[in-house]
Amino acid sequence: MSERVLIEVTDGVARLTLNRPDAANAIDVPMADAIMEAAVTVAEDRDVRAVVLTGTGRMFCAGGDIMAFAQDLDQAHAVIARITAPLHAGIARLATMDKPLVMLVNGPAAGAGLGLALLGDIVVASTAAHFTSAYTAIGMSPDAATSWLLPRVAGLRRAQDMVLTNRRVLPEEALACGMVTAVAAPDEVETVVASYLDKLRAAPPGALGVSRRLLAEALSSGLSGHLEREAAGIVGRAGSDDGKAAIRGFFDRKE
């Protein structure tokens, strides 16, 4: 695996770390490839129960590597296409895997970094973090699912404000509007993430996978179709081995 993204698996948790601290963890072609490869690796690893994504150094992720775009402006479109193809494939795999995704936003997130930060099922932000769209500041438009995720988690009006004006959002506002799940001091953020991981590891993996898919589809599906998917999901869980074991375990604990 490329050193652009580090992978560490411990006690059923895969930790993915964006690893270009000298470049603010900006996404160049090798990092985009590494994100896609890492996403496939952890999604297919049966020993992995949950995934954490974070960054090395002061920044979470500054977005796309502007220096890579600027080296040859006549070919900037080709470079961006080469980045977005694997990056978006990696994001899609992380979004659809049967495992919860926890974002540890250790520092500022901008551009594609904002999209990555919003992708988590649980997002824990350091008080050292802040969130900026940044795209229109360099004449670009959103990628990395930013324009899909932001209206869903923060509302359309706030998304319009952030994307069109590049206004910086601090952790307190991000928490209040639903962009993040929790905020913690830099020296406490790992402890908060660990507490969430304990809860996720304790849950049956199949139940988390089905629930994750249902929540992801909720805002883009009609009620009738969604009710059918809910029914199929819960019936399937009741018929599965780990579903039956979970029900038995619940009553054993009650007794």
Rank of each mutant, 00 (worst) to 15 (best):
74 D>P: 13
61 C>E: 02
164 L>Q: 08
17 T>R: 07
232 A>I: 08
163 V>L: 09
137 A>E: 14
195 S>Q: 11
208 L>H: 06
87 L>R: 03
47 D>I: 08
38 A>S: 14
184 A>S: 03
118 L>W: 01
135 Y>F: 14
17 T>S: 04
246 A>V: 07
235 V>H: 06
107 G>T: 01
207 A>D: 10
120 G>M: 00
91 I>H: 10
181 T>A: 01
216 A>Q: 13
75 Q>L: 11
147 S>N: 05
167 R>V: 11
3 E>I: 06
128 A>M: 15
127 T>I: 09
103 M>W: 09
66 I>V: 14
219 L>A: 15
233 G>K: 03
164 L>K: 10
225 G>P: 07
48 V>C: 00
224 S>R: 03
61 C>S: 05
62 A>T: 08
74 D>K: 10
154 A>P: 02
240 S>G: 12
46 R>L: 07
3 E>W: 05
118 L>C: 00
72 D>A: 08
118 L>E: 06
252 D>F: 02
76 A>N: 04
125 A>L: 01
218 A>V: 07
155 G>N: 12
201 R>A: 04
137 A>C: 01
83 I>E: 13
66 I>P: 04
135 Y>I: 02
137 A>Q: 07
215 L>R: 09
225 G>W: 13
40 V>W: 10
85 A>Y: 15
43 A>Y: 10
115 G>C: 00
119 L>W: 05
119 L>T: 02
194 A>G: 03
250 F>C: 02
60 F>A: 04
72 D>I: 01
45 D>R: 13
227 L>P: 11
243 G>L: 02
120 G>R: 11
13 V>I: 13
252 D>T: 06
169 V>I: 15
43 A>F: 04
143 D>E: 15
180 V>K: 08
181 T>N: 00
81 A>V: 01
66 I>Y: 15
24 A>S: 07
182 A>I: 05
132 T>P: 00
64 G>A: 07
235 V>S: 02
243 G>M: 11
219 L>N: 12
49 R>W: 09
86 P>Y: 04
255 E>T: 04
96 T>N: 09
92 A>H: 12
17 T>P: 05
115 G>N: 07
77 H>G: 15
156 L>I: 13
131 F>I: 08
70 A>I: 05
46 R>D: 10
58 R>V: 14
1 M>R: 13
171 P>W: 00
224 S>C: 09
137 A>L: 14
89 A>C: 06
202 A>E: 15
110 A>F: 03
106 N>W: 10
237 R>S: 08
25 N>T: 00
134 A>E: 15
170 L>W: 14
228 E>A: 07
101 L>H: 01
44 E>D: 13
229 R>W: 11
193 V>W: 09
198 D>S: 01
184 A>F: 11
48 V>Y: 09
212 R>Q: 06
192 V>C: 02
164 L>N: 08
64 G>L: 13
142 P>D: 06
1 M>F: 13
220 S>H: 03
247 I>E: 05
251 F>A: 06
213 R>V: 12
131 F>W: 04
34 A>T: 04
